[in-house]
C-alpha cells in the first residue's frame, strides 16, 4: 500500500454509473417504449484525505446524490470502484458502513411515532451498542447538538431544523471516521447553522474525521471545505481549494472606495490625469459629503495602491475600501454555462 493510499480516507477510481433500464430485453421483445439509460456519473477519480473536509457542489441532477450513495454502499457503480478506509464499497460493504455515517436530507428516514431518543437508541443498537453504551453516546450527542430538551419529543413534533440536527446526530452515533453530510445546514436558522458549521469544523480538527459534504450553500462550502469539487452532468469539472478555484476562474477583484473631502467632479478629474477614465465608475455615496468610485483590478497589479495615493494627494479622505473577489457561485455558473453551450 502506498503512502498516499494509506492516508486516503475515500478513494474514487474511474467511477461511472449508468442507471440501467429495467427489463430492457423484455421491453425490446415486446416492442415497448423505454427511456434511455441515465448516465449519472462519468469516469470520476479523486481522493479525499483523512481529516479533510471535502465539498461537492453542482446543480440538482448533476450526480451528487448518486456519488454520495455509492460511497455509502447504497448504490453499486457500473464501472470503477470506490474504497473507504481501504475497503471496497461493493466487495466489503459492511466494513465500509462501519466507517461511514450518512446524514441525508430525507425527513422520512426516521420513525415518526417514536421519540428522538428512541429513534437514536434503535439505530445505536443496529450499530452494535449495548443499551447502556447507546444511552451514554446519545446523551453526548444530544449535548453536542443541543438536542437535550427534545429527547422525549416524538420525531413528528420536531421542527425541520431539529430533524436535520437529529439526522446529523444519527450519522455521528458510532463515531465513524468518515461522515457524509448531505446539506447539513439545510433548514437551520442562521445561528443554528453557524453552530453546525462550527461542530463540523471541530469534528475534522479534534477527531480527525473526514467529511464529505454536499451543499447548495456556496458560502458554507467556502468557509468549511479544504477542497471543493464541482460536478456537472456526471463529471468532475474542477477540483481544488476554494481559493485556487476562484483564482483559476478569474484573478480580478471588484474594488469600491468610499471617500470624503473631494467632490465627484474633482475626483473624476484627479484620476483622469493618471488613469484611463473608462476604468472607473463614480457614484455619489449614501451620505451627502461622500463619493464612491468602483473599478476592477487584477489580483497582482498595483492599481489599488496607485488609485488610493492619487485620491489622497488630491485631498480625499479615504473612508472605506471594499474588495469583492469571484465567489464559488461565479465559478459554478461558469461551468454550468459552458455545459449548456
Amino acid at each position: 500500500m502506498t503512502l498516499e493510499a494509506k492516508s486516503a480516507a475515500i478513494s474514487v477510481d474511474h467511477l461511472s454509473k449508468t442507471y440501467p433500464v429495467s427489463f430492457l430485453r423484455l421491453k425490446k421483445l415486446l416492442r415497448r417504449k423505454f427511456k434511455p439509460p441515465v448516465e449519472a456519473l462519468r469516469n470520476i477519480s479523486f481522493t479525499i484525505n483523512e481529516g479533510e473536509i471535502f465539498g461537492l457542489i453542482g446543480q440538482n441532477g448533476a450526480g451528487k446524490t448518486t456519488l454520495t450513495k455509492i460511497i455509502a454502499t447504497l448504490v453499486q457503480p457500473t464501472t470503477g470502484n470506490v474504497t473507504v478506509k481501504g475497503h471496497d464499497t461493493v466487495k466489503d460493504d459492511q466494513r465500509v458502513r462501519r466507517n461511514v455515517g450518512l446524514s441525508g436530507a430525507e425527513e422520512r428516514s426516521f420513525y415518526w411515532r417514536l421519540t428522538t431518543e428512541q429513534n437514536l437508541l434503535f439505530f445505536a443498537r443496529l450499530h452494535g451498542f449495548s443499551g447502556r453504551a447507546a444511552k451514554s453516546r446519545i446523551s453526548e450527542l444530544f449535548e453536542l447538538l443541543e438536542l437535550q430538551e427534545l429527547a422525549t419529543r416524538r420525531f413528528a413534533e420536531l421542527s425541520t431544523g431539529n430533524k436535520q440536527r437529529l439526522s446529523v446526530a444519527r450519522a455521528m452515533l458510532a463515531q465513524p471516521p468518515v461522515l457524509l453530510l448531505d446539506e447539513p445546514t439545510r433548514s437551520l436558522d442562521p445561528i443554528a447553522a453557524a453552530r453546525m458549521r462550527s461542530t463540523i469544523k471541530s469534528l475534522a480538527q479534534a477527531n480527525n474525521a473526514t467529511i464529505f459534504l454536499t451543499s447548495h450553500n456556496l458560502n458554507e462550502v467556502e468557509e468549511l471545505c479544504d477542497r471543493v469539487a464541482i460536478i456537472s452532468k456526471g463529471e468532475i469539472r474542477a477540483l481544488d481549494t476554494p481559493r485556487n478555484l476562484r483564482a483559476a476562474h478569474t484573478e480580478e477583484e471588484r474594488v469600491t472606495i468610499v471617500f470624503g473631502g473631494l467632490g465627484l467632479a474633482d475626483s473624476e478629474q484627479a484620476l483622469a490625469r493618471s488613469f484611463r477614465p473608462e476604468l472607473f465608475v463614480f457614484e455619489p455615496s449614501s451620505r451627502a459629503d461622500e463619493t464612491s468610485v468602483k473599478f476592477v483590478r487584477d489580483d497582482h497589479d498595483q492599481l489599488l495602491d496607485r488609485v488610493l495615493r492619487t485620491l489622497q494627494q488630491s485631498g480625499a479622505l479615504i473612508k472605506s475600501v471594499e474588495s469583492e473577489k469571484a465567489t464559488l457561485l461565479d465559478v459554478l455558473e461558469r461551468y454550468e454555462e459552458a455545459d449548456n453551450d
Binding site: 459492511q94 439505530f123 450499530h127
Partner: peptide, 14 residues
C-alpha cells in the same frame, strides 16, 4: 414505504 430502509441499511447490518 416509510422511507427508513436507507437509514437502516446504512448501519453495518446485512
Amino acid at each position: 414505504v416509510q422511507g427508513t430502509l436507507e437509514s437502516v441499511l446504512m448501519t453495518p447490518i446485512s
